[in-house]
């Protein structure tokens, strides 16, 4: 990752917290997948979460938009607490965008229809306006010429960029990324990461689960390491990579950075 694309992380972040997770626990049956998570995310902050598989990183961010339900503790997103209240859940989902590892584009709809689905049916936007909005974001992710095509006709990297644009069309306040480049062929990873860097430049709050350490170094405010359902350690990228505090962190880093 060239240093030209690194985004300044020294700017003072606002103290305003947009996501607060307080002593959150989750069990899958008897398995304690998330053990006492405490996390505060500030506006415009960019966090990268890494860790071995099974550590709960995906489950953590899936709890933030209620794709998974937590059993103990509190999660508050932009002042709205996540409980069984359906209205709250829907509100949170319109403010939080999610990008999946396997893109999950709707194959029976064209690209532009994929993007306008949310705005039309959730934000009740007229079709013309939704399409203009969609084209704006398609251009942002450099894929405007494919608007009338179908997902099956695009490459993996193109599909993921469309997926990012689809989430952006809802004008979210926070973007969650669940291993966005893990399912891509190597030559397509850069095009997706470039889009994510552009997003960072514009000040979007981002939580990214990823193993792309170059991306973390150049863009993240904080890098968190998770293992066995706990956030073991978190620090600025520089401190995190240069001075890992815990043995588990050191072990993990030695395994992925070689």
């Amino acid at each position: 990752m060239d240093t030209e694309s690194s985004v300044t992380t020294e700017q003072t972040l606002s103290d305003e917290a947009i996501i607060e997770i307080i002593d959150m626990h989750k069990w899958f049956g008897d398995f304690h997948v998330l053990q006492g998570i405490n996390l505060t995310v500030h506006k415009q902050e960019r966090i990268v979460i890494c860790g071995p598989s099974g550590s709960g990183k995906s489950t953590l961010i899936r709890c933030i938009n209620r794709l998974e339900e937590h059993q103990r503790g509190r999660i508050v997103v932009d002042g709205i607490e996540l409980t069984n209240n359906i209205k709250n859940i829907e509100k949170v989902r319109t403010e939080v965008g999610m990008v999946f590892q396997h893109f999950n584009l709707f194959p029976h709809l064209s690209i532009i229809e994929n993007l306008t689905l949310g705005p039309i049916w959730v934000r009740k936007v007229p079709k013309k306006e939704a399409e203009e909005n969609a084209m704006y974001y398609l251009e942002k992710v450099h894929i405007a010429e494919q608007a009338r095509k179908y997902p099956g006709q695009l490459s993996g990297g193109q599909q993921q960029r469309v997926a990012i644009a689809r989430s952006l069309c809802m004008n979210p306040k926070v973007m969650l990324f669940d291993e966005p480049t893990s399912a891509l062929d190597p030559e397509m990873i850069k095009e997706v990461l470039d889009v994510m860097i552009d997003l960072a430049r514009e000040g979007m709050t981002m939580i990214v689960v990823s193993h792309e350490m170059g991306f973390a170094k150049s863009v993240a405010h904080r890098v968190l390491f998770m293992d066995f359902g706990q956030i073991v350690e978190g620090n600025t990228p520089h401190e995190f990579f240069e001075n890992p505090q815990h043995d588990r962190t050191k072990l993990f880093l030695s395994q992925i950075l070689h």
């Binding site: 053990q35 904080r222 620090n235």
Partner: peptide
């Protein structure tokens, strides 16, 4: 930036009985 370190020694918390 502060660390978010968990207490290494903690009681085994059981999931809620009704689950």
């Amino acid at each position: 930036m502060e660390d978010i370190i968990q207490k290494t020694s903690k009681e085994e918390i059981k999931p809620p009985v009704v689950s």
